[in-house]
């Protein structure tokens, strides 16, 4: 386990998540992609912390990323619920009111 390998795994997670966030149509699946991307960021930050500068400030940054993940998830679910109520759908392609 070295910094390079941790970062490689984190890049793989981020890339897979990016694919999901770009390609999926269902809002919940898009959120899963975003979550995977944040997991990659978490892992990379953990690697930086452990291999470069293991003092508590880095961990506080990790905590902030974790909080961002929670906010993303809760708000995402709420927006998906709103979409479902208003449009009866949970697909991103049908939420185009701003485009029209």
């Amino acid at each position: 386990m070295t910094l390079e390998t941790v970062l490689l795994v984190a890049s793989a997670l981020l890339a897979v998540g990016l694919y999901g966030a770009l390609s999926q149509q269902v809002v919940v699946m898009v959120m899963m992609g975003l979550e995977l991307m944040i997991a990659g960021v978490l892992l990379a930050l953990g690697g930086f912390w452990w291999f470069l500068s293991p003092d508590p400030s880095g961990q506080v940054l990790l905590l902030v990323v974790l909080a961002a993940m929670t906010v993303e998830m809760a708000t995402g679910f709420a927006v998906a619920t709103l979409l479902h109520r208003r449009a009866g759908s949970d697909m991103t392609d049908m939420a185009t009111e701003l485009h029209e």
């Binding site: 793989a12 997670l13 897979v16 999901g20 699946m29 899963m32 995977l36």
Partner: peptide
């Protein structure tokens, strides 16, 4: 982590 991440999609 990566294999399951791919499996999601």
């Amino acid at each position: 982590a990566v294999a399951m991440g791919v499996l999601v999609f």
